[in-house]
Amino acid sequence: MQYYIQQILNALQVGSVYALIALGYTMVYGILTLINFAHGDIFMVSTYIAFFFSTLLLGLTHHLPPLFTFVATLLAAMAGTSLVAVIIERLAYKPLRTAPRISCVITALGVGLLLENFMVAFKPIGPDSRIIPALFESTNYVIAGVTFSTLQIMIILISGIAMVLLDLVVRKTMIGMAMRAISWDKFTVPLMGISVDTIISITFILGASVAAIGGTLYGMAYSIDPYMGIRIGWWAFISAVVGGIGNIRGAMLGGFILGFIEIFTPVFLPASTYRDFVAFSLLLVLLIFKPTGILGKPAVQKV
C-alpha cells in the first residue's frame, strides 16, 4: 500500500510537468491549428536558461535568500523562454500564416531539430548532461512510510498554481476571450478590432512561460541534456492529444494520465524501457476509438 502511495506521488510529480508542457501544445493548436512540434525543445531551452541563470546567480554571491534565487531563476527562465518562443514564431511561423498547414507543421519539426542540434553543436553547451544547482534546501519527510521531499511538494504545488492561473487567464480575461474567439473564427476576429498577431504572440508567451516553469522544476529534480526535449516533448504531446488537443483542461488531465503510465509501467511490466511502447500504443488505440481525445469535441467538417 505504502509502495503504491509513493508511486502515486511520483506519478503526480512527473505528470504535472507533462501537463505544463502539454498546455503549450494545446494552446497553440487551439489558436493556429498548428501542431507546434518545437515545443518540447522550447522546454529544453528553458531548462538551459534556468541552469545558466542560476549558476550565474550563485556564482556572484551565496548570501541571497534561497527563496529569492528560486523565484528569480523561475522568472528569468520564463522571460528568456518567452523571448525564444516569440522569435521563433515571428521568424518561422508568421511568414507561413497563409501557406498550407502542412508547411507550418514541417517547419515546426525543423525548428525543433534545429534547436536540439544547435545546442549540441554549440560549444558552451554541448551534448553532456547537467543538473541545475539546488536553489533551496530539500529535506525528505517520512510520513507513514511514504517518503516525500520539499522539492516534490514544490513541483506539484507550483504546477497546480500555474495551471489554475492559466485556466483563469483563458476563461476570465479579455486576452483569454480573444484567444478563444480566434480559435472559433479566425476571419471575423480581426474585424472586431483585435490584433490577431498580438494574441498569437501572447499565446506563445503563455505556452513558453508555463513550459519554463515546468523546465526549471524538472531541471532541479532530474538531469538535463539537449535531447531531453524529444522524449518529454513527445510525451507531453501525447498528453495533449489524449486529453483532446485544443482543450486546456484536457491537456492537464492527459498530463497526469501520462505521468501515471510512466511510473506504473515498470510496476506491471518487466522493464521501464516499455514505457514509450505503452504510451504510444495508448495514443494509437485512443485515436482509433476516440479521435478527438477524452475531453475534445468532435470537429464538424465543412464542405
Binding site: A92, L96, A99, S103, C104, I106, T107, L109, G110, V111, G112, L113, L114, N117, F118, V120, A121
Partner: peptide
Amino acid sequence: QVFAPLMLIFLM
C-alpha cells in the same frame, strides 16, 4: 546536423 533543419525551414 544543424544544416538540414535550417534548410527545411528556409525551403518552407
